[in-house]
Design a protein around this nucleic acid. Structure first.
Lengths: 149, 149
DNA sequence: TATTGTTATACTCTATAACTATA
DNA sequence: TATAGTTATAGAGTATAACAATA
């Protein structure tokens, strides 16, 4: 964990520090950076991990669906899938019901890597949510799901 | 609010959609985009609003403190303060106790604009947290503060 | 005519290093 | 020698438009 000397702690009392939007941004940044640190051991980032995770989900998502769900442009999905495909972790398959679409699924190697990477993201969660109780985590997840979906 | 057709709703059941990190990112993205939409009416973005807010806080922050608190590089702070200063919203003052540092404070115009912009960020919060009860918002703020600080 | 994936391109955001003035 | 701010620059991330294949 990158711990920095917070000599600016006195700004915690400002109005900005009470805004949920600001706090969300800070919490996300911390979690993202910690997750990226740990995922680097498997040459993944949060972004590519997300695609791999959905490829492993059994839901057979198309690239279009991945982009929609991850809020990423189609061109960004192309780049992410390209990289994972080159590494032999996922494969593109033409959707028989609509030959324009490509379904992204994980290979055996992809599933194996996902299992290890998933454990890393859980470890990252423990690191930056360490001060939260089980109950608080459950509350947080429930509230965030109401916002996000 | 940019409402998009979510034909990928079926992915809500995936393991990824249960991860707090993922949900935090989504919630932040929604809030950020909504706040930017509303702040555009005052030619501000979330980023420049944050600097203006701290300049109005009465805490007389230095640029260094702004960067530390907002997790931004010194060079980014320079660019943000430059823009706000050009618009006559904030001013740089040399810190008498350390002539290397510059203290950022708001002008009268800056305070007036901040009041309007703050109302916009509260409106944005209402928009994307609309489904949350008062109690849930309080819980969320408290939990996020434990994570962020 | 509209949509999926692709490519190319540009724009924004972020990170890094070097410089100055002060300490 | 170290630090605050500045400048320049490069890299990563993001958004846009145009194209081929398919619907």
């Amino acid at each position: 964990m990158t711990t920095r000397p917070l000599t600016a702690n006195r700004l915690h009392e400002t109005s900005l520090a009470q805004e949920i939007q600001f706090l969300l941004a800070r919490a996300r940044a911390q979690g993202n950076s910690r997750a990226n640190e740990l995922l680097a051991a498997e040459n993944l980032k949060v972004r590519s991990f997300s695609v791999l995770s959905l490829a492993c989900s059994g839901m057979n998502p198309t690239q279009r669906e991945l982009g929609e769900f991850l809020h990423l442009d189609p061109s960004q999905i192309v780049a992410l899938v390209d990289e994972l495909e080159k590494r032999g972790l996922v494969k593109r398959e033409v959707d028989p019901s609509d030959r324009r679409s490509k379904i992204i699924t994980a290979t055996n190697d992809g599933h194996a890597l996902y299992d290890r990477a998933y454990a890393l993201t859980m470890a990252a969660e423990d690191d930056y949510l360490g001060t939260l109780s089980r109950r608080e985590r459950t509350q947080l997840r429930a509230i965030l799901q109401k916002i996000a979906f």
